[in-house]
Each structure stands twice: as C-alpha cells, then as structure tokens.
C-alpha cells in the first residue's frame, strides 16, 4: 500500500465520518450509492486496500462530501484533466509559472486568483 493510497483513504474516511456525526446519510452505503459505486469498494478505498478510484469517481466523491475536487484529486495523486489540458496547451508557460509560484505563501498566490470585480453601483 502506497502512502498516497493511505492518505487518500484516511482523508475521505475522516471527512465522511465528520459529516456523519450530524447526518446519518453519510454512511459508507449511502455515500457509495449517491456516487454510483459499490459500498464494499468505497470501504476498501477508505482503508487504503485499493488505489484511489478514477478521476470521475473522485470528482463525484468530492461533490458528495462537499470537498474541493482538486484537493481530493491531488491526494489521489491525480491532476484533473482540465488542468492537464491547460498545461499541455502551454507547457513551457505553465511549467515556469508553477515553479515560480510553488514556494510562495498562500496569500501571495491568492492574489493571482481571478476575483469577480466589484464596481460602482
């Protein structure tokens, strides 16, 4: 079992169980049902007995748990296909950008996020 597999499973189980404290519909069975996988498979994923599921399933799982899909994909050792496409289209630019940004503190990176501009009204 790789560290990635274990981290992903622990994270998913931790979040699902936190939600289950206030809402019983966050059982393994019901969450699995909502995202269209077998409960036994979700249970194995959570225990790290199998590698993280496909990108599409990870995204559905993130939606079901109210988590950010990019965070779950990263924990699963994956990069979402839209990000892969963006890098493939301009590999040099994005490669350089990510290397430049990787050590910056969060607040400095957040300045690059595109905000909806508020004007005068």
């Amino acid at each position: 079992m790789s560290d990635d597999t274990r981290t992903f499973g622990d994270y998913v189980r931790g979040h699902r169980e936190a939600l289950r404290e206030t809402d019983r519909t966050y059982s393994v069975r019901q969450v699995a049902g909502r995202i269209g996988i077998e409960p036994s498979y979700l249970s194995k994923v959570e225990r790290g007995h199998v590698p993280p599921p496909s990108e599409a399933t990870v995204v559905r799982l993130a939606e079901a748990l109210g988590e950010d899909p990019d965070v779950l994909l990263a924990l699963a050792g994956k990069v979402s296909s839209d990000l892969k496409d963006a890098i493939r289209r301009r590999p040099q630019l994005f490669g350089e950008l990510i290397r430049e940004l990787r050590d910056l503190p969060d607040h400095a990176v957040l300045k690059l996020v595109r905000e909806v501009r508020d004007g005068d009204w």
Binding site: V116, R117, D118, G119, D120, W121
Partner: peptide, 12 residues
C-alpha cells in the same frame, strides 16, 4: 460588446 454602465458596475 456591453454597455459602459455594466462595466462600471463590474461583476458577472
């Protein structure tokens, strides 16, 4: 392609 007024308001 949009009015000056919309640009002044900003937003979406």
């Amino acid at each position: 392609d949009i009015s000056e007024r919309w640009l002044t308001h900003g937003g979406v």
